[in-house]
């Protein structure tokens, strides 16, 4: 436990020194929620909707940090540490490379939660946002989204043969997911054809789940997204456990 604490402290410092997660996971969601708030503020989500445009968007924006950490930060750091043989060094200590991976997962989860707190505070203070649904369900869904997004990250980081390929894969995953899953561009505003394509992305399903929880829609409507998220997590985790490369 002492090892974990000291390593978490030091890896967190290193991550903050890297600055990119502060930009992509902390600053960017705040900027996006402010823009959405200013442009659409009180307008209804669609004609005759009972909730404003901002309300479903809150859930979407809250996942930007998960997406940045899970499919960009996490795979890059894993592949970097393997490339630099840091994981190998842990193999010749009483600790294990798993420890440093666990530390990284915790760090990116912390970024996500911090981002959620900031986005909520901004939406609440400046645009009068209120979460009408259940916080309990929302946070449960949030953890599920973290689990499935991070499992993709561990998979990519564990299997990519080098950091160059890892960064190509993360870009291919990150940018489409960020734009088309509804995290930045509202899903509701997309043409139906695009929505169908977007539905393939696991994050789209995650955002649907969070929207339903935050708006207080019935849980039955999101059984499918829940199943998709869980399935993604199971597949990615089992494949990474089976094929993870330490070197």
């Amino acid at each position: 436990m002492k090892t974990f604490r000291i390593m978490l402290k030091s890896e967190l410092k290193l991550s903050l020194r890297g600055i990119d997660m502060i930009i992509f996971a902390i600053c960017m969601p705040i900027v996006v929620i402010i823009i959405i708030g200013i442009i659409y503020g009180d307008t209804p989500a669609f004609d005759g909707a009972e909730y404003t445009y901002l309300e479903p968007s809150f859930s979407a924006v809250a996942t930007i940090a998960i997406c940045a950490g899970g499919v960009m930060g996490l795979p890059l750091v894993i592949s970097d540490y393997r490339h630099k043989k840091i994981l190998k060094r842990f193999k010749v200590t009483p600790s294990s490379p798993l420890m440093i991976l666990a530390v990284q997962v915790v760090i990116y989860a912390l970024y996500s939660i911090t981002s959620l707190v900031f986005v909520y505070t901004v939406a609440r203070l400046f645009f009068g946002y209120q979460l009408n649904g259940s916080w309990f369900q929302f946070l449960g869904g949030y953890l599920l989204v973290i689990l499935s997004m991070f499992s993709i990250g561990v998979l990519v980081g564990g299997l990519a043969p080098n950091i160059k390929i890892a960064s190509v894969i993360t870009s291919v995953l990150y940018f489409p997911m960020l734009i088309f899953s509804g995290a930045t561009l509202p899903y509701e505003a997309m043409p139906t054809a695009l929505q169908k394509v977007a539905n393939i992305l696991p994050l789209t399903q995650g955002i649907k789940l969070l929207k339903a929880a935050s708006l207080g829609l019935p849980i039955e409507s999101v059984i499918f997204p829940i199943m998709v998220m869980i399935l993604f997590a199971i597949i990615c985790i089992s494949v990474s456990i089976r094929f993870f490369k330490w070197e």
Binding site: T3, M7, S10, E11, K84
Partner: peptide
């Protein structure tokens, strides 16, 4: 094999904690 941006004292401290 060490992390980028890590300081000497930090690397020693983490190693010690193992």
């Amino acid at each position: 094999n060490y992390q980028e941006n890590i300081r000497v004292g930090e690397l020693c401290e983490v190693t010690e904690s193992l």
